[in-house]
């Protein structure tokens, strides 16, 4: 089990094409995914002013919308990269949105999902593939 406080290596994360990152760990025989949004996405969204978190306990499918982040004049939906049940959300985050930019891969995590199906993992990108996508978009 990964301890909090250890610097996360973003090169070891998985990424979705809609800019969510995924960190996997084993837990009681199942997989739990911690999910956030990438530094690149936060930078593109500019000054964030609001975010909406999902409810704990909700079943979510890969590709399904689970929340929103807002800047002054844009709303960006957040899409789950995995299938499973939401077991935790970072409830302090909406009051400290700057964390998303300051520490996107550690304190800026958004939710934890206990996977019910691992097939969607195959569609995620590794760091280098994601970097390539970002350079094309940027």
């Amino acid at each position: 089990m990964q301890k909090e406080g250890i610097t996360v290596n973003e090169e070891q994360l998985l990424y979705s094409s809609s800019h969510e990152w995924v960190r996997l760990r084993e837990d009681e025989g199942g997989k739990v995914a911690t999910i956030g949004i990438s530094a690149f996405a936060v930078q593109q969204l500019t000054d964030l002013v609001f975010m909406e978190l999902p409810e704990v306990g909700r079943q979510i499918a890969a590709g399904e919308e689970f929340g929103e982040v807002e800047s002054v004049k844009a709303v960006s939906p957040l899409y789950s990269p995995v299938d499973g049940e939401i077991i935790a959300v970072n409830s302090e985050l909406p009051d400290r949105l700057e964390t998303l930019g300051d520490d996107p891969y550690e304190k800026g995590w958004i939710m934890k999902v206990r996977l019910t199906d691992e097939s969607s993992l195959a569609r995620l990108m590794d760091y280098s593939a994601y970097q390539k996508q970002c350079s094309e978009e940027g």
């Binding site: 000054d47 002013v49 609001f50 002054v72 949105l97």
Partner: peptide, 8 residues
């Protein structure tokens, strides 16, 4: 005017 402050 600071619209970010107004919205946050």
């Amino acid at each position: 005017p600071d619209e970010v402050q107004a919205a946050r």
